[in-house]
Design a protein around this nucleic acid. Sequence first.
DNA 1: AGTCATCTTTGACATAGCGCAAACATCGAC
DNA 2: GTCGATGTTTGCGCTATGTCAAAGATGACT
Lengths: 231, 231
Amino acid sequence: MKIDKSLVRSIPLFDRMSDADLDKFLGHAVSRRVPAGEAVFEQGAAATHFFLLLHGRLKVTQVTEDGQQIIVRVVHPGDLFGFAKALQRSDYPGTALAVAESIALCWPTELWPQFVDRNPRLAVTAMQTIGQRLEEAHTRIREMSTQEVERRVAHAVLRLANQAGRKEGTGVRIDFPISRQDIAEMTGTTLHTVSRILSAWEGKGLVEGGRQKLLVLDLNGLAALADHVKE
Amino acid sequence: MKIDKSLVRSIPLFDRMSDADLDKFLGHAVSRRVPAGEAVFEQGAAATHFFLLLHGRLKVTQVTEDGQQIIVRVVHPGDLFGFAKALQRSDYPGTALAVAESIALCWPTELWPQFVDRNPRLAVTAMQTIGQRLEEAHTRIREMSTQEVERRVAHAVLRLANQAGRKEGTGVRIDFPISRQDIAEMTGTTLHTVSRILSAWEGKGLVEGGRQKLLVLDLNGLAALADHVKE
DNA sequence: AGTCATCTTTGACATAGCGCAAACATCGAC
DNA sequence: GTCGATGTTTGCGCTATGTCAAAGATGACT
């Protein structure tokens, strides 16, 4: 298996690993193509592998007992995901669904302890990564606790623009198919409300919508909305 | 410094550490008494130490730019807190306030890497701990996204009863001073709404309130409320 | 005992945003 | 090009909750 090392190197989790160890690590990996709409793993399934996204885009979702769905996070190229076993779970807490054609590296979870034993730094950096996710989660909790829907949506869109934005003409295109429903599930609201908000924004020239499309025209304007303390 | 090893042993983070290493670890600790109402550290301050709560109770809070406060979590005896540096932050993301007279062990953050180097397992178990917190955060996000206030409050109270409950007569007493405002900040609502909800519950004989007091009389009844899918 | 600072309760009112429903747009398949 | 599936927009009414306000409780301090 021949894998480009540069992408792997670029992610903090591996940047300090020796070249030999990295080769060994990659040697155990299997790469897997995932067509859009297909799941890499399902919520509740045994956590047999952990993954690194090389290309494409995934959304990790959870479904509540009563059938409601939320988007836990979006996985971008270079992100590690399906970490469950390392966090002492035996099953995946969510479903990872490809929203665009994707390619992921897969390792059997059993290998994780070995890699950590051989390379203690790995555990440290992994912990930092998780720590970052924890912070993001707290940010989200803070927003949901204190901000009204429009500001939350503004923040979510800005984050997407940062993480998955591609310059396009006057604005920034969100670089994967995303529906109002998705945005609703990321911000804790309904697709109706999101639709209304985006329509209003479109009226003000802040964004430009479309079926599963979003183009941000005025980042500053959006940021103002997101930060603006209503007076 | 003489410290009782049994409590420290009982927490997962240290259960696999050798006796010699544990002694060394504890040898570097300083214990600190924190009177109720005083902060162990403040949001934004340089993360000079990390801590282990031996006795008492803390709440970790964050304040938003516009002055709103939320409670990130409650720290119980045996919990590690003020972890910031291990997660690659240089400052504390929140304030840790003693809600009851407390005693904490303190280590300088610089020691963390040493301990990890000497004891790689430590990093693994630490990561598991953080992973658990991440899950809790996601649970909270899920609840805030999909459940109405009353159910969220029910869940929060049940959690408190589990983690800080002391049997008392017919019911379970929440074992530290907690205000309606606190519960509101844990569930993303206002103290008014919490007060109304608790009053209603009191009417149904589920709980018994009081100034900064809460006694749960009917755990099952509350659980029913928490799980009940409204039909 | 009395005073004060904090909490708590409750009422009245306002409204954000949800649920429901129906029309409309877009895209891929045939 | 037509059709069907899937996503989007928009109107309308409703209600859960926030906001504002004021009146009790409770407990600490002197």
